[in-house]
């Protein structure tokens, strides 16, 4: 258990819950990060932030601060 930010690059995790509210949470979910889906953390940007993850077969960039809202296991 933990959040997406803590996940090591190169590993795959399963989403447990998305915290936060409003536009940000809606956007995260609209992009396909929903309860139960798998996320593969591909890499972090050259300056350390944001992250590049793979979800539902495509690449998505998520800031680390936003990744903290995503609880994974």
């Amino acid at each position: 258990m933990g959040n997406l930010r803590q996940v090591e690059v190169g590993s795959t995790v399963k989403v447990v819950k998305i915290n936060g509210e409003g536009a940000l949470k809606r956007r995260i979910m609209d992009m396909g990060i929903t309860k139960g889906c798998e996320i593969f953390v591909r890499k972090s940007a050259p300056l350390g932030d944001p992250l590049e993850v793979q979800v539902r077969g495509y690449e998505l960039s998520v800031r680390k601060a936003d990744a903290e809202l995503i609880e994974v296991e």
């Binding site: 956007r27 992009m31 590049e52 495509y58 690449e59 998505l60 960039s61 998520v62 800031r63 936003d66």
Partner: peptide
């Protein structure tokens, strides 16, 4: 500010 949850297209 638009949430920066951005697709990285192929």
């Amino acid at each position: 500010a638009a949430p920066f949850v951005m697709e990285l297209p192929s």
